[in-house]
Design a binder for these strands. Sequence first.
DNA 1: ATGTAC
Length: 405
Amino acid sequence: MPAGQEAGQASGTAKDSATVAVFASDASWIESDALVQCHQVAALDGMVHVAAMPDLHPGKGAPIGAAMASTVLYPFLVGSDIGCGIAVFPLRLGRVVPDRLAARFPDLDRPLDPGNETDAPAFDAVGDDIPAGHLEGLGTVGRGNHFVELARVDTVEEPGHAGRLGLAAGDVVLLVHSGSRGLGERILREHTAAHGAGPAPDPAAYLAAHDAAVRWGALNRRLLAARVAHALGAELAEPIVDQCHNLVEVRDGTYLHRKGAAPGDGRDVLVAGTRGTRSYLVAAHAGARANYSVAHGAGRKMSRADALRRGRAKHTVDELRRTPVGSLVVCGDRQLLFEEAPTAYKRVEQVIGDLVAHDLATPVATTLPLVTYKTPDRAAPHRRDRRAGMTGRSSRGRPTGWRPA
DNA sequence: ATGTAC
């Protein structure tokens, strides 16, 4: 079916089903499985309205890239990574040499320990009030699409707005995409064990646990930023953007479930591209038809299994570790390297174009990756890369094939 | 996306 703005309401909504609005142009390909999932969600008891974002793709049982308003609270619509979000931290650095910075990244798979002296700087910067007292996995980035990225502000589309955020072209920022790790997973698992995909019988009890996971996710992003800033010798500032795209919010007498959809009601949101492409900082102004939400990223265009199979035929590991924009990817996990390849995602410009076309957001600035960190690189590639002349790199610290995207 | 089982 066409995925134009009116398509959802014009097509396929059964009589007692909620409305579905898809905020994507006809030119934006959306996997039909994801649209089927939207209509399955629309048929749930109590569902009022489903807004699908242009980065919509199929998830486990529920679509990713959707905001779903219902009089009934369904924990499975938010999923296990309650509190997942993206934060942007300004960072002041001296000389920016991606290879050297990549080599200095700390091991963000190792949990922080409040009793360990080496971890004191992170807690000193952020505090040690840990929601739910949950220490497991604290300060770790996780897997999947999570990342920590050093990026440079590239274009500035709205100088006044960017200026108010303290951003100018050339500035270095740290993007942190992570969530509540095992805590949110445990909350969903406990609900599912008793009630499956059914509603929360005690919404207040679920919301209390959920709210702690949301706070934990925000704290975790700050701890991750503090670890990186400390390792790179940079001072940590408060995030200029930090929006959570997996959560449920009580609004207009309904439970507004966001799954891979960021709050778009007058807030600034970082819409993540891929590690090989730009990301967009946007000023969001989405209304009721969009369930007050905007896209959270480029959106997968193929499954992890497909990305792995096709990526192995198409890319070498070295290609994936040094991107066409000259940035580095720190990822010691080969499978993850293929699963998260830029080619597994839609073009973020198309997603942003759809948000603009539907008047959901206005681009403020774009960022280009310098170093995207996923998981420690045990192969220690940086040593090899220092031999500039032997690896096809120019003396300027960029691959010879570098082009400005 | 996750911890855990295979």
